[in-house]
Design a protein around this nucleic acid. Structure first.
Lengths: 141, 141
DNA sequence: AGAATATATGTAGAGTAGTTCAGACGTTAA
DNA sequence: TTAACGTCTGAACTACTCTACATATATTCT
């Protein structure tokens, strides 16, 4: 998903006077560098997007947009194995994207993060978003 | 980034009468299934998020939020090698997330997709977004 | 208590992504 | 033309992710 990233980014930032790098617009480079979020934030951001980079997890999260569901219903809904759903939920739980409510031997999951809702929404719009959901009206007219 | 996804998702969707799956709330499962976007859209969505799941690419895109930049300036800004930047831009170009303007031997890249802008914005908010950008006031120290 | 259920976890294998190095291509200057 | 430059590409190596199977834990029922 993300991974090795931290290593690769740390040992490369060169100063302006570095002779091994050509700068075409040094002023812009400085300006943009000053606006660049901290390393840790960039890594976290990439990791968050990484959580959404798997179709199975996306399906799970889209399902949870409609409210809490238990693991076996999520499996039936998404077409994943129950083990697969559990693994996916583990990841999402670790990043506080979903949260659990336990009742007996059941585990009911729900979205814990409103940003994810927004990301899914923008993303669905981006890819064409013609789910069978919001198109209740016939398109001609 | 994404990859095998299409294979794994296609051969798994079970019908309601499948005996191998327990349903706790069959009605909800049906409702959610009816709202689930098409397979291809889910896969595309995951692939789009996958593009944003690498810190190097995220840095490049954040840099491009400020306007077009050439490859070597992007390398200097992000701390990646020029080859690395080129590889990253190739991916982003293939998905029409960025576009090129060529001038002589230079290549100037810019964002080609407003959704990506929104995704980055929501994402940055999500992770804490305390870049040194909008916080003009100095924090103590 | 033991069996069945619902979920969670460990692990191995296959596939895939990111980095690096080497070199290719097209452009400009001498 | 040759040389220098900016960018692009291919291939190899490493490290990761996902899936599947097996098993573990916790809860309920008999």
């Amino acid at each position: 998903m993300t991974g090795k990233s931290t290593k690769s980014t740390s040992s490369k930032v060169l100063s302006d006077s570095e002779c091994s790098v050509r700068l075409v617009d040094a002023g812009k480079v400085e300006m943009v560098k000053s606006k660049m979020p901290q390393d840790a934030n960039v890594v976290d951001l990439a990791a968050t997007f990484g959580l959404l980079s798997d179709p199975g997890r996306v399906r799970i999260l889209i399902a949870l947009l409609e409210g809490e569901m238990c693991v076996c219903d999520l499996a039936a809904t998404t077409g994943l194995s129950e083990s697969g759903v559990s693994h996916a939920l583990r990841l999402l739980r670790a990043s506080r994207v979903v949260e659990v409510r336990r009742s007996g031997r059941m585990a009911y999951y729900s979205l814990a993060d409103s940003h994810v809702r927004m990301l899914l929404d923008v993303g669905l719009t981006h890819v064409g978003h013609a789910g069978q959901q919001r198109l209740t009206m016939a398109s001609s007219g």
